[in-house]
Design a binder for these strands. Structure first.
Lengths: 258, 258
DNA sequence: GCAAAAGTGTTCTCTATACACCCATGG
DNA sequence: CCATGGGTGTATAGAGAACACTTTTGC
């Protein structure tokens, strides 16, 4: 708590914030890193503010590092949310709770408290990270920082559910012309892993055999040994990404006759 | 000039601005609405600020209306620019001129002058408008407000060239899954008009006969009478958009097997 | 008749999609 | 041997690209 003190507001750009939708993949599930606030049962996206002398993208990277311990990660801006009532969009009943919570927990910092009451325009960034390498760290307002499956998202504060939905749509469109997976999957993975990942982003079942062929044709994979799963069926191959070919494909895009 | 007075800053969100890339189509050329500043030869995108009690999207519509006279127009956010040095990105020599210009022309408004000196994070919006219906109106800082072909863009202040380039890339990608034209072209147009429009956004020549077939297959057009152009060749058909089918296609997207 | 642009046709390749088939694995 | 999931094969329909052919127009 003492991390924050009142004078911090002198170093922050007022009225602008950043919220990060941090994706990870684990147990064949697509997950998002969420914070649970102290004392009350409210969830939020990891977020933060921009220093007066800091590029906005840099701030997003800093925030991501503060919550996940990760550096040098795929991080992209996707939308800026500037509705004047965005803090009350969902759950009309919650804002009062939040307000009193904010006021109580930081009452020893009157300037900061006041500062937090202003209207914020927030820019959404999304990150794709290797869940195994991440070390979730709660912020000063939060109890816990944990991975939650996108299929089981709780109700979030403010417009954060809307931010996540916008983000998912954005990524679903990106999948049409960009490969995905290198930052989300472990070094070795099966085609089924990759398919589950795509299905989670697209919110749609895909056909197994065609998916495999389509992916392999991208020519960005290295086929490794087979993996005995212990199940009563044929063992799938493990794959890893051919990083240089992958990055090349990211640069030139998929299927751009344009 | 008296439109602005010092107290206006009390009603504006500090540190946030909006810049609009307003597209029109005329003489078979894709054009952008630009402002030329007073006394010095500097060009800029139409922009403005957000009222403390105004949704950001609403502000973008207001700014668009102030510069073009147009209401109810296709207007979309595409990116937010938050580099700390974004006002000096290009033309290292210009900022000083700009600064003194700003200070001089508004010296009677010291608070406003001071306010304008702060760092701004700007959100880019793009609009597609019918150039025939637009009535360009200069703002208080500008002499003229005019349409400039995207092929002949001047050097713009700050990072405005970068903003335009980002916008063009954004739209080029959108063209893969959204139709375009209804807000840019006049009521009646030829396939060649539409093709020129696409070529301008994609910065690439397209094959005439295939383009026509691909477009017509979208089934969003109404074929009208032929148009005698006076040229020594076959007269092209005129087309108009079937608005309801067009809007339906915008909603469901092109080629989304996903 | 001729040049030029519009409209339509043809051919080839590539992709998407659906589904069939055989293979490996553990019980 | 059987159920299950993995890998590959195949057949069909449609899209994209290149280019040929025919039509219309004004000179």
């Amino acid at each position: 708590m003492s991390l924050y003190n009142d004078s911090i507001v002198d170093y922050l750009i007022p009225g602008n914030s950043i919220d990060c939708v941090i994706f990870g993949y684990e147990d064949q599930l697509l997950k998002i890193l969420l914070l649970k606030w102290k004392t009350i049962d409210l969830w939020a996206l990891p977020g933060g503010f921009i220093l007066k002398n800091e590029d906005m993208d840099k701030a997003a990277h800093r925030i991501l590092k503060d919550r996940s311990g990760l550096d040098n990660v795929f991080l992209n801006q996707f939308h800026t949310f500037g509705n004047k009532n965005r803090r009350e969009l969902l759950n009309q009943n919650i804002p009062k709770e939040v307000e009193s919570f904010e006021k109580n927990t930081i009452k020893e910092h009157p300037r900061l408290a006041k500062w937090l009451e202003q209207r914020f325009i927030t820019t959404g960034y999304f990150a794709l990270v290797d869940i195994k390498k991440a070390k979730p760290i709660p912020d000063v307002l939060s109890d816990t920082c944990e991975w939650v499956s996108v299929n089981e998202l709780p109700v979030l504060i403010y417009d954060h559910n809307h931010i996540i939905n916008t983000c998912l749509k954005h990524i679903a469109i990106q999948l049409n012309y960009l490969p995905i997976g290198i930052s989300l999957l472990p070094n070795k993975f099966t085609m089924q892993d990759l398919q589950r990942l795509y299905e989670a982003f697209l919110n749609k079942k895909l056909e197994r055999s065609n998916f495999q062929r389509k992916m392999l044709k991208l020519d960005i994979f290295i086929r490794l040994e087979k993996q005995l799963t212990g199940a009563a069926n044929k063992a799938p191959y493990l794959y890893s990404f051919n990083k240089s070919k992958y990055l090349e494909l990211v640069k030139k895009g998929i299927g751009f006759s344009y």
